[in-house]
Design a protein around this nucleic acid. Structure first.
Ligand SMILES: [Mn+2]
Ligand SMILES: [Mn+2]
Ligand SMILES: [Mn+2]
Ligand SMILES: [Mn+2]
Lengths: 217, 217
DNA sequence: ACTTAATTTTAGGGGACTCTAAAAATATTT
DNA sequence: AAATATTTTTAGAGTCCCCTAAAATTAAGT
């Protein structure tokens, strides 16, 4: 598999909600920052290799083999993120971009040795579960902060967006994985939330709340 | 720089004996396991970018910028080799192939953090010096075992060939970096050597001796 | 010096991946 | 249901990197 094929596969995996329907060409193009016509080409190639199912105009879904390959890339990505944070002292907003490169290194032995070196971590620095070498992945039950009604106490368990910009915003607000928070009120007009964090109330936009995963206590 | 450009640059660096002459197209093609016509194409591209000097039929040499870029790739390659050996318990015959991939990861910060994590190693697992972040590289004085006259006592300080096959042969003979050895005799006919290692005399072919770096005691 | 051999370059082309523009299919509105 | 908008695919082309075959140049042998 080439670098490019791997990126497509991973993005198709990430877009796969178990909604039964195929993933749209457009959705893939947006994530890949490429054009729909490029996606059509690549998707045909992946279908020829048996990694995705594809029918014209019907979207794409992963085969078992494709899903496994995608999971192995996700596994490497997240293990490297842990390595960068834990061993090399990178911050959580820096690790994703470098892991985008490291995830393509091909050596099963390296991946497994790295996992052992890191003491078999189960989550990456952004709260996402790390698949094991057989492709098993823990299903964590988490909700978006934007879906929590006022009055509930929650704990922050993950981020949907791992971009540097978003994570640095969270740092500024002193929100980290494990932070407890309580939803005080929700504004009907713009869906912004007022939440209690670190003893202080702060207001966050819907865009922020829709990128923070929490667990209800 | 692309993956391919980096590999060419590194190979040109490794072929650069300070003999004043340019590196031959054929020599590069052999190392790259590609064809001379492909080399000509790439070399023109590298010349356009100011990384090599090139005149038709005259061979190629690195510019200062090209040499620096090459040194940074060599630096990454060797640091990753140390990481794989020291931290992940790989053996010295396994690290080179994986480092061939890791050397292309682009992040100066990662390279420097890795170097720090490894405690600023000065040599890789095969005895080769590691360039620092400014591109300074230690010139180690070492000779090929094949050039040592009978009677001399030497210590093994490096290997010219880092292939798995050669390194596993050395393991079998219990020859490692730091092994002391004495040249007992040299056969005129095939240039094979009889050397004393680990208290026992063994005979090695010229091909072996021409790939072992030693220092005279 | 002249012939032969080896090296290097050019010419032309193929595969992988991407793009724009146009055509086809599907989805949405009226 | 027809018209319009959106999505998706096709057609054609460009870049990168590699190849083979043929031509040009340089090196070696007699
Ligand atoms: Mn990530
Ligand atoms: Mn990637
Ligand atoms: Mn190496
Ligand atoms: Mn390489």
């Amino acid at each position: 598999m080439t670098y490019s094929e791997e990126n497509y596969l991973k993005i198709i995996y990430h877009l796969s909600n178990n909604s039964g329907k195929g993933i749209a060409t457009n959705a893939i193009a947006n994530q890949m920052e490429s054009k729909p016509s490029s996606v059509t080409d690549m998707v045909k190639k992946l279908a020829d290799k048996g990694l995705v199912r594809y029918k014209k105009y019907q979207g794409v879904s992963l085969t078992d083999e494709g899903r496994f390959k995608a999971l192995m890339i996700v596994r490497k990505h997240r293990l490297w993120e842990v390595f960068l944070l834990e061993k090399l002292d990178f911050s959580w907003d820096e690790v994703h971009d470098i892991a985008e490169q490291l995830e393509h290194i091909k050596s099963e032995k390296l991946t497994n040795k790295l996992e052992e070196f890191l003491d078999f971590p189960t989550e990456d620095p952004h709260g996402d579960p790390i698949p094991d070498s057989e492709g098993n992945i823990k299903k964590v039950d988490k909700k978006l902060l934007s879906e929590i009604p006022a009055g509930k106490k929650v704990i922050c368990v993950g981020v949907k967006d791992s971009s540097s910009a978003f994570l640095q915003y969270l740092d500024k607000q002193q929100i980290a994985l494990g932070s407890g928070m309580e939803v005080i009120s929700k504004e009907d007009f713009d869906l912004s939330l007022t939440i209690q964090v670190n003893g202080k109330p702060i207001t966050v936009s819907n865009k922020i709340a829709a990128n923070l995963f929490v667990k209800i206590l």
